[in-house]
Structure formats: C-alpha cells, structure tokens
C-alpha cells in the first residue's frame, strides 16, 4: 500500500512538473545569454556588472513560481481536468502536496541555476577573489549566513504558494466574482500577518547584536513562516476535501 501511495504521488508530481518546465528553461536561457553577453562585451574589473543580471534573474526565479502556482491549480478548472483530479482516490494532502513540491522544485531549480551559473562566472572572471575572501573573512560563517538566508527565502516562497492555493480554492467556492475574491484573499493573506505583528520583525532586528544571533533570528523567522504556511495549507486541504464541488 505504501508503495502504491508513492506511485500515485509520483504520477501527480510528474504530471504537474510539466507546468514548471518552461519557466525553468526561461530562467536558464536568460541566465546563460546575459552572462555570455557580458563576457563578450566586458573585460577585467568591469565584469563585476555580472552581479546586476544575477540579482535580477534571482528575482525572476523567485517570481515565476508564484505565477506557476496560479496556473498549476487554475488550469485544472480551465481544462476541466478537475473532474479527473477530484474523482481520483487520493487525499487533498497528496493532491496539493504534489503541486507544492512541483512549485518548490521550480523555485529550487531556478534559483540554484542562477546562483551556480553566476558564481562560476564570477570565479572565472576573478580567480583571486576566493583565496582573498578566505584570508579576510570567515568562510564558514558566510556559508551559514547564506544558508539561513536561502532557507528564509524558501520559507517565504512556501508561504506565498500557500496563500496562492488557499485564495484560489476559496475563490472557487463562489460561482460569481471568483477571481476577484481570490485576489482579495491572496492580498489579505500576503500582507495580513505583517500588519498584525509589525513589532515582531523590528524586535528581531534590534535584538540581533552580533552575526550569530542574527542567524538564529533568521531561523526563528523561517520556523514561524513555515508554521503559518502549514496552517494555510491545512485550510486548503480542508476546502479541497470537504467543500469543493463541481
């Protein structure tokens, strides 16, 4: 039984992965083209300009999965495949879980692609940079900071996906103004928590007196965000399993 549950999850995941394919390809091509273009046009120190497209593409790699999150669910209704999905003998957790994993895969693939390609480009352009850094700074600490920041971005994007799922499913409960309701709920979920606890964020910032505690606070932020995301996902699953009708 466990094996077949895995098979079901895999089938759902692979089916939806198709929706993310194009986006990852766009990010990869844009990264390669812009970096090769800079390599062709510049020399020496001016190559530091690579950082500009790298940051922009990071933004793109983070933004596209949010678009996908609306398409990956909305399309099921658009193509009537929702009839197939809802008649399958699987739980809402598996259904939404597989879609979430696809989106996460897209985010990871996109950001890691941009990160890796631009890092390699910079290391090639400035061979002295790495040994220099090693001498002047604590590489291990830097890695820790990078990892915690990346984890924070992952938590944030998972929260975004959860907002997207919940707002869409909630909108589907209404036959009229479904899109508008989705938009309002999405914005509420996105900015609501920040409005309710504006002090929490600032307190975290001010109490961080050294880098180590900053990192610790980032991890607390990651934890809180993920818990909130899980709550929204649980609500989405509940709507999918108990309330959704066609």
């Amino acid at each position: 039984m466990a094996a077949s549950k895995f098979k079901m999850f895999k089938s759902l995941y692979l089916k939806d992965l198709r929706e993310a394919r194009v986006e990852v390809l766009i990010v990869a091509i844009a990264t390669l083209v812009s970096i090769l273009w800079i390599f062709a046009k510049t020399e020496g120190d001016s190559r530091m300009i690579i950082m500009v497209p790298a940051v922009a593409l990071m933004g793109l790699a983070g933004f596209l999965p949010v678009i996908t999150s609306f398409r990956i669910l909305g399309r099921e209704w658009g193509q009537n495949t929702i009839y197939l999905m809802m008649s399958l003998p699987v739980s809402g957790t598996m259904m939404l879980g597989s879609k979430l994993l696809v989106l996460l895969s897209e985010y990871l693939a996109g950001t890691l692609l941009v990160g890796t390609i631009s890092s390699i480009a910079i290391i090639i352009s400035f061979p002295d940079l790495l040994p220099e850094l090693n001498r002047q700074a604590d590489l291990i600490l830097m890695t820790k900071i990078l990892i915690s920041l990346y984890a924070a971005s992952i938590a944030a994007i998972v929260y975004l996906f959860s907002c997207s799922f919940l707002s869409q499913l909630f909108g589907k409960l209404f036959s009229r103004a479904s899109g508008f309701i989705t938009l309002v709920v999405f914005l509420l979920l996105l900015f609501g928590p920040g409005k309710f606890s504006p002090e929490l964020g600032w307190n975290l910032h001010y109490q961080a007196t050294d880098i180590a505690s900053s990192i610790a606070f980032i991890w607390i932020y990651v934890g809180i965000t993920l818990v909130l995301a899980l709550l929204l996902l649980a609500a989405s699953v509940w709507i999918w399993e108990r309330k959704m009708e066609l």
């Binding site: 009537n80 929702i82 009839y83 197939l84």
Partner: peptide
C-alpha cells in the same frame, strides 16, 4: 468508481 464525465476531463 470509474467515472466518464460529460466534459473532456483528460489533459490535452
């Protein structure tokens, strides 16, 4: 249950 809905419910 094997369900054949009236709409086209398969991925194109």
């Amino acid at each position: 249950v094997a369900y054949l809905p009236e709409v086209d419910h398969l991925y194109p």
